[in-house]
Amino acid sequence: MNTLTISPSPHVHSGDSVKKNMYWVIIALLPALAASFFYFGIGAIIVTLTAVLSCVIFEFLISKYILKTEPTIGDGSAALTGLLLAFNLPTYLPIWIIIIGSLVAIGIAKMSFGGLGNNPFNPALVGRVFLLISFPVQMTMWPTPILSRFHYFGLTPEIIDATTGATPLAIMKEGVSSGIAHAELMHRLPSLTELFMGIKGGSAGESAAAALLLGVAILLYKRVITWHIPVSVVGSIIVFTGLLHLYDVESYAGPAFHLLTGGVMLGAFFMATDYVTSPMAPKGMIIFGVGVGVITILIRVFGSFPEGISFAILIMNGFTPLIDKYIRPKRFGEVNKPIKA
């Protein structure tokens, strides 16, 4: 007989682990990765590989040589950050910029707070926003799907001219602000089916709503995430844009357009649901989600940027501790039914 082990109850465990959760999110992102490869070809692969590899390497180096702790790259969280970062970048982005983005994401947004679990802001989004502010030209050069498949190396101005275009949101913003008639604008934009399938300009991962929906279905089925955040983000966007659309059909696009363009799907399903930076209580999650949805639309419709979900999520990340402090889960015995005597 071995030495008996004494430990406090419970003596069984669900077998769930950080690793499993992270890898399921990565698996759920694979359909979108495949879609981005289909639309953007070689660029998508290079951007993804660079971001994932550099995130993992940075985490390894920082934890080993600066924090002097056991590197935890095996749990997949660094790879996931890299993947999410890549999904937020245009596929023509030069490698060195991606590496800078990864360094910011892992080094500043994650490891400087103490690594996994301690970061107040979503690392991938911090990396993305940093790049957007630092390299506005490169970061808004959106390759056109399918046309850009075989271009990444040796880009000449001619190729770039021929294979880049504005995102639907940018077209919309531009159009509305220069007073182009609504019908005319609609004509210039891709159809909803095209948007749903991802035939539009945009970053690597946010293209195909269909692939992202498949991914979120996997996550919900495997209970990696709960429905609260995705549903509240999407729901609040539908309600808010729906109201605006009803108020003035000419100047405000409908909910379907807003949902299918930009990073709403990616953000609502994969970035806002990030465990570390979202609230813990179900009610808090809904408040968080509604906040993300409303701020996104405010930025899109009234702000100067065409897309706002990254900013919205980061802003709400900042509110997470506050939400956690005031919104508690529903406690047992709080709603007391009267005794039927």
């Binding site: 030495t3 008996l4 082990t5 004494i6 430990s7 406090p8």
Partner: peptide, 19 residues
Amino acid sequence: PRITKYDGATSCTIASSLF
């Protein structure tokens, strides 16, 4: 000599409340 092995949170108080 050790006759059992403790496997729980690293805290004397927790361990001694257990055994």
